[in-house]
Amino acid sequence: MSKALDIPTVQKVAELARLKLTDDEIKAIAGQLKAVLENFEQIAAVNTKDVEPLVTPTDLRVHFREDAVVVQPDLDAFLANAPARSGRLFKVPPVV
């Protein structure tokens, strides 16, 4: 299961998750997650042949939304928390 959670793997995962970690953090997390995953190995022993994965644990009936538009009365409230804006647009570093 866990093929030694080494430093490069932890770095790769941190990049994937867009988390800037210090070298110390990486070292600490590698150690902690290694211990955690070693403990978690235990589930490999459970026989799950032909068992369908469970996501939602209760039997709920799916309900759909009717196709109707609801206009927000206070659109500015959805923009007000933005760290940077230009007019009514969100301003971000260049994406190309």
């Binding site: 230009s86 647009l89 969100f90 301003k91 971000v92 570093p93 260049p94 994406v95 190309v96």
Partner: peptide, 13 residues
């Protein structure tokens, strides 16, 4: 939709 303005981009959702 993103539009690009050199130094920055603008996002319209």
């Amino acid at each position: 939709k993103s539009t690009h303005h050199g130094e920055y981009s603008l996002i319209n959702l």
